[in-house]
Amino acid sequence: MAIIRFTDRPLFRNPWADFERMRREFDALFQGLTGEYPRQVGGTVYPALNISEDADHLYVRAEIPGVKAADLDISVEGDTLTISGERATGPAEQRFSYHRREIECGRFSRAITLPTRVNPDQVGAGFVNGVLTIILPKAETAKPRKIEIKTQ
């Protein structure tokens, strides 16, 4: 049995709090069913990536705030995409007294295997407001091909 000290209890406990929490969780669950894809756990290497595709392209997106576009290095080799770079540390630290330090600085590098072959010559990348978007055109062999049915 959990022991709860008398003083730990709030004076007026909202009897609906548990129901409200349940409703929020159900909302999140159904959001996952109707289009919004649930997040997969297990992104352990920075930066976390979102990858999607349409018929002709692969799209790779990452949130990399505080990095200059010049410090980002993107390369495609075969079907491996590598994103690396460095987030510079802030100004010299001696003169300041820090109240909070939550922003991490340092190097990062991530390589992933792409699900299809891509055309490495036409890879485009944009970096706007700290969000990196890489557009990779699929190789001709990987594009879906429509097959005509001949009727005699």
Binding site: R39, G42, A48, N50, R61
Partner: peptide, 16 residues
């Protein structure tokens, strides 16, 4: 906007 409407999600590691 996030962009990426009409695309099929293959991997999703962060939410925005």
């Amino acid at each position: 906007g996030n962009g990426g409407e009409g695309e099929r999600v293959l991997l999703r590691e962060f939410e925005s």
